[in-house]
């Protein structure tokens, strides 16, 4: 039963390498299968089939880069990419900024700190679907925020982002920030708490003001925390799908389409698998582009130090 008794009975012969720790290897089979079959195999399969003309079913009819050419000729994809760029850059900057500011506020030894933290973080426990639907309702022009402000007497007040193709992505951004900032705040707060108390004391003895200490001393010290936060935000941005489906369904028209939605629409609704594969391969490429410099900074830097 146990490996220990096995090895003691076969003391004279050197045990076979392959069967050393065989129980550990057996127990790792699900992990190995997941890593190799689903992650490596699945990704490779998708990339390979993105060069085929598959429609309803995957077929090995090679078409070269046709799917990619068609992809970049499709307005819907271009809109998706633009939306993702706007949403991504805004959400990256604002989440980092707000997350850090809130964390810094909570780190000032204030009262009711845990109450505030609980409030800022609870949206993170909710589903994107719930978030999307609530904000859809609040931003509803006939009954929501706009209507309430108008009923207060400001008749010309207009705040209807979800029904305007030019602003719909900012409407989604409001909901996205609401859901995601709490997490970043929590990470930043943990980072701030990890900073040596003596640094603050030294800065105080040097007569450096609070804001200046944050900007000149603390933020540079928190570089690894910022990098972690950045990676988290970035991977969240690329996954953006549920929120859009729930809040706008991609509308009005195609104005709030995003790449993840494009992939699923083409794979499972439009029955154009090849397009879906090509689009998802493009998503993979963007992740690689983001991830490689990060991995280099994170792991390349460690070797030097």
């Amino acid at each position: 039963m146990t490996t220990a008794s096995d090895s003691s009975s076969s003391m004279t012969k050197r045990p076979n390498r392959l069967f050393k720790n065989w129980m550990a290897k057996l127990a790792s089979v699900p992990m190995i299968l997941t890593a190799l079959v689903v992650f490596v195999g699945g990704t490779a399969w998708t990339i390979v089939y993105s060069f085929t003309g598959s429609r309803m079913l995957p077929k090995t009819k090679w078409v070269g880069f046709d799917q990619y050419e068609r992809l970049w000729d499709t307005d819907r994809w271009i809109i998706s990419i633009k939306n993702l760029a706007i949403y991504g850059s805004c959400s990256m900057i604002l989440t980092l900024f707000l997350g850090f500011c809130l964390a810094a506020c909570l780190d000032r030894k204030i009262r009711y700190e845990s109450a505030f933290r609980t409030i800022f973080l609870y949206p993170f426990a909710l589903s994107f679907v719930v978030t999307g639907l609530v904000w859809q309702w609040i931003l509803n022009p006939d009954f929501g925020l706009q209507n309430v402000v108008r009923s207060w007497g400001w008749e010309s007040f207009t705040f209807n982002p979800l029904n305007d193709p030019n602003t719909v992505i900012y409407g989604i951004l409001i909901a996205g920030l609401w859901q995601g900032t709490g997490l970043i705040m929590c990470i930043m707060l943990a980072g701030l708490r990890g900073i040596d108390e003596d640094i603050w004391k030294a800065a105080k003895v040097d007569g450096i003001g609070t804001v200046k200490t944050y900007v000149m001393v603390i933020i540079p010290m928190m570089r690894p925390v910022f990098v972690t936060a950045l990676v988290l935000i970035a991977s969240g941005i690329i996954k953006l799908y549920d929120l859009v489906v729930a809040q706008t369904g991609g509308g009005p028209g195609l104005a709030s389409e995003v790449p993840a939605k494009y992939v699923i629409e083409y794979m499972f609704r439009a029955q154009n698998l090849g397009q879906g594969f090509a689009a998802s391969t493009m998503m993979l490429c963007s992740v690689v582009i983001i991830l490689i410099p990060w991995a280099y900074l994170e792991f390349g830097g460690k070797k030097r130090g």
Binding site: V38, F39, G41, G42, T43, W45, T46, I47, Y49, P58, S235, I238, K239, P259, A260, V263, I264, M267, L273, G276, F277, A279, S280, T281, M283, L284, V287, L291
Partner: peptide, 11 residues
């Protein structure tokens, strides 16, 4: 870190 979309169909 791989977008789920690349693994959806093989699954």
């Amino acid at each position: 870190f791989i977008p789920y979309q690349t693994m959806l169909y093989p699954i």
